[in-house]
């Protein structure tokens, strides 16, 4: 669906102003930080629940709201309840040593953004990219990471890695579908037709990582899964909560705890 650009801008301005919360950042807390980025092409925006969404804001800010609250309940992390959003080129990006990106299948980055992310990661920052489905969306992210970390290639993070065991024990990488695709009688993967072609197989969820020279994880991509949707939609039904939100929270707690300790 193509909309005139002035309509898009007006809608974006409305949604952005409605969500913007301008409060001083409390650095004594762990701030959940969403990265705002541009997407390219006709799929850069999508219509959902009565408004137009940019790709970067998928599940934002409800997912962060819910997750911040659950982190405070489930762990001893002191989290800010109001999420932060930043662009990679924002000068204070370093105040948020863990940043989260979602739905990056159509993401488009400038050289300045790639450079900023490289410096951020070199300093010890951590990027969690989530909600990729299929091969094409991952490939788009992989191309970007190739610009950010030339010569560094992703590796699958094995289930024995500490990130799966810091607080909760995981025996497999959970696959979390968006709530509207989750059916008790179906598989847990989302349908290929809603994702960037060629999607390839969407059946198996995995965590893919970029490691630094010392073997520390710098970037994880949770592939074929939408962890943040489990946070966002926790109240959309008991069945979804019990089957998916709990797994989302368990993995989220582990990722945050791992990043805060390594």
């Amino acid at each position: 669906m193509h909309l005139p650009s002035f309509v898009l801008l007006a809608l974006l301005a409305h949604t952005a102003s409605a969500m913007e919360v301008n409060v001083p950042t409390d650095l004594t807390l762990v701030n959940l930080t969403r990265v705002e980025y541009d997407s390219a092409g006709s799929e850069a925006y999508y219509w959902h629940e009565g408004r137009l969404w940019a790709r970067w804001e998928t599940d934002y800010p409800q997912a962060e709201h819910n997750f911040a609250k659950r982190l405070g309940e489930l762990t001893r992390l002191q989290t800010a309840r109001v999420p932060i959003k930043r662009r990679l080129t924002d000068s204070d990006l370093g105040d948020f040593p863990l940043i989260y990106m979602s739905d990056m299948g159509y993401a488009s980055f400038t050289p300045e953004e790639a450079e900023a992310l490289r410096a951020y990661l070199d300093n010890g920052g951590f990027l969690w990219a989530d909600d990729f489905w299929g091969d094409a969306e991952w490939a788009n992210f992989e191309r970007f990471m190739h610009r950010v970390l030339p010569g560094n290639h992703w590796r699958e993070v094995p289930i024995v890695h500490p990130i799966f065991h810091t607080v909760f024990e995981h025996e497999e990488m959970p696959q979390i579908p968006a709530e509207n695709f989750a059916r008790p009688w179906s598989t847990t993967s989302e349908p290929a037709w809603v994702h960037r072609p060629p999607a390839g197989s969407l059946e198996r969820a995995s965590m893919r990582g970029y490691f630094d020279e010392d073997g520390r994880l710098m970037v994880i991509g949770t592939h074929n899964t939408d962890v943040a949707d489990g946070w966002e939609r926790e109240a959309y039904g008991q069945w979804y909560f019990e089957h998916f939100s709990t797994k989302s929270y368990r993995l989220g707690v582990n990722v945050f705890t791992y990043v805060l300790t390594h």
Binding site: R76, Q78, P97
Partner: peptide, 28 residues
Amino acid sequence: EPRWEYKFIRRAIAGDKVLELVSWLRTT
């Protein structure tokens, strides 16, 4: 409590030839 200072102290002395940091952290 897990917090950024903990992470970056550990990171600052990781690989140090002299310092051997053993940590005990209450996660929950």
